[in-house]
Structures are given as C-alpha cells and as structure tokens.
C-alpha cells in the first residue's frame, strides 16, 4: 500500500514532510507561548497516542510531535480540536472547520517573552498582544515570523524576525515630585542610552535618545517617573536568519500604538501578495522588500494607517547583517 499525498495540502495543514518516509510531524501553535497544564497534557497525549511519545519544543514556542504515521492525520486533527478551540478560537481567530486541523502554516507561531504577567521589566502583556495579533493574521499562508518582547532587552529576539514588536513606554516626569536622587539617570546611563541627565537638581530626558525601556520608572523611589497611559511599541522589520543574508531587523516605526502595529502587519500580507515572486518556492518577505525597496514597502504598508501623534518613523533603513557569499573570506588558519 503506497501513500499518495498532496504534499502542499499536507504542509498547509501543519504536518511536515520528515526524513522518515511515511511518517510526519505535527506542529502545534501556542500564540504568545503561554498555555496551561491541561493543554500540555493534551499535547502529551497526542504524542503518546499517535507519535512515539516524544515531543519537541520549537524555537518559536510551539510544539512539534514527530513520528506520526501520515495515515493518522485525520485522527490527530480531531485530537487537536480542543487545543485549536482554546488557543485559537477563544482568542478570536476565525477557523472555518476546527475539526480539520490547522488551516495554514505559513504564518509562523507568534512568539512572546513572558511579558508583564511575570517580568518586572515588561511594558505590556506580550502574550495577550500575541493572541490579539494572531486573530488578525492567522490563518495565512505567507511565511511570516512575528515575535513580541516586553521591553528593549528583547529576550524573545524580536531582532531576528520579519516583524519584531518591542513593547515600550513613554515615561512621564513629575517635576515637583522628583527629589533629584539621580537613580534614574544612573540607571539610564549604566544600562541604556544615557537619555537622562541631571540639570541642577532636576532631570532632563533627551526624547530622541529615549528607547522607552522604563528603567527610570523602575528606578525612581518616589514614582516621579510613571508610564504615560496607553501602550506603545517599537516595530522592527525584516530581520532574518537563513542561508543567504542573515541580518537584524531594524526599527521602522517607534512609539506607535497597537492599532498601527496590527494594521501594518495586515497590510504587509497584501503587499506580499502583490510583489511575491511566485516562480520561487517561497520567497521570504525580507527579500521581497529588498527587491521593491524600502520606500515601496513603506508606502504600501502604511496605506490607511493613522499614526498616533507620538509616532516616529525611519527615513531609510540599512539592515546590518552579512552575506554568506563572503564566506570566501574564511580561510584555514596556517
């Protein structure tokens, strides 16, 4: 009995072609990297029941259960249903037939650092944001990587993503409350960009150098620094790893609100649709932007976007990275 599979259908359903013939691996999405113990138990059960009892935690905070016979795909999909309901539908994701497994795999799992559910530095609930963005961008077939980090420490490595979202704050200073202890200035100078300075016994913030990490808010013994109400983000774009040209994502928009971030990502899907080279198996967004140029990308993704008044935007972007063509420089040491 030989298997007759449509490879495209299978991979779109989040099953993988693996090196072991006739066996597949299922990838389970965990938007924002948070799940509860009963969900883990459910995933474990799938691994035991349909795989060989092993499972892998992916770099993007999902799970991959290997060594499942292709023949079991339908059963696995049925077993996935409660997970899809709890981790996707409950967060507003639209999936027409949740009994049929994942409807797309191009959009990768949206990963997030632990965020302010636990971390004192985080400027937002990163998982919550991941779940909300998931509802906007999933299901989608274009290969896109999104990650959300709670502060510019960037524990989730937003700098390696197509879209890296850094939650920031806009610090507000209560002049009359400040006692001039310099704790914030020292913290900013030691750990961040030195955006704060003493002017006599008061503090001045160089607004251009402030990256919104919130160290000053954490440092101040009297809450003279607090976070401006609202949520603000820095949106990094088009970082990547890969075989050709690994490079860091760079700031495109800064101090923008959630609406802007979400709309820009959604617009990008339309942009990709328009410009992607369909002759290639799957062209990554970053390479599309390389071809069209930053300006085209910018103009397309900002269509219909109303920037909040605090927003800042990059004029041009140069992505730091390297080209693997330069490997010719690597020589055997004598």
């Amino acid at each position: 009995m030989s298997l007759d599979l449509n490879r495209k259908t299978v991979t779109k359903n989040a099953f993988r072609i693996t090196k072991r013939r006739n066996y597949t691996a299922i990838r389970i999405r965990v938007p924002g990297g948070h799940l509860n113990a009963s969900q883990i138990a459910r995933i474990a059960k799938i691994a035991e029941q349909f795989g060989d009892g092993n499972l892998h935690i992916t770099t993007r905070q999902g799970f991959e259960i290997p060594n499942i016979p292709f023949a079991k795909m339908a059963e696995v999909n049925a077993a996935l249903r409660p997970l899809i309901e709890e981790l996707e539908l409950e967060h507003g994701v639209k999936i027409d037939n949740p009994a049929a497994g994942y409807p797309a795999a191009g959009m990768r799992n949206i990963s997030a650092c632990i965020g302010n559910r636990t971390c004192p530095f985080a400027n937002t609930d990163t998982t919550g944001l991941a779940q909300r963005i998931e509802a906007v961008v999933y299901p989608h077939d274009f290969h896109t990587k999104i990650a959300i980090t709670g502060c510019p420490n960037d524990c989730i490595k937003a700098h390696m993503q197509d879209f890296g979202i850094i939650a920031i704050c806009i610090p507000e200073y209560d002049y009359d409350q400040c006692i001039g202890c310099e704790a914030c200035v020292k913290a900013c100078q030691r750990k961040v960009t030195g955006a704060l300075d003493m002017n006599g016994s008061k503090v001045v913030r160089d607004e251009r150098r402030c990256i919104g990490c919130g160290e000053c808010v954490l440092a101040c013994p009297i809450s003279a620094w607090t976070r401006k109400p609202g949520k603000y983000y820095r949106l990094l774009v088009m970082g990547r790893t890969g075989k050709k040209n690994p490079r860091l994502a760079m700031p495109f928009l800064d101090r923008v609100n959630e609406e802007v971030v979400t709309k820009v990502i959604a617009n990008t899907m339309a942009y990709v649709d328009r410009y992607i080279l369909r002759c290639l198996p799957k062209e990554h967004i970053g390479y599309i932007v390389d071809r069209t140029g930053f300006n085209v990308f910018r103009d397309e993704v900002l269509q219909g976007v109303v920037l909040n008044p605090e927003a800042r935007m990059a004029k041009t972007i140069q992505w730091p990275g390297y080209n693997t063509l330069n490997d010719a420089n690597l020589k055997t040491p004598k």
Binding site: N116, P120, C169, G214, L218, S223, T226, R227, P229
Partner: peptide, 15 residues
C-alpha cells in the same frame, strides 16, 4: 488610585 502609574506596567499607584 492612579491606574497604570505603578512601578510595573499595568499596575496602579496608590498615593
């Protein structure tokens, strides 16, 4: 209570 003005994000400050 000052909503969102606490030391940590999404916490409040009472003063």
């Amino acid at each position: 209570r000052f909503v969102g003005r606490g030391r940590f994000s999404d916490t409040d400050l009472v003063r």
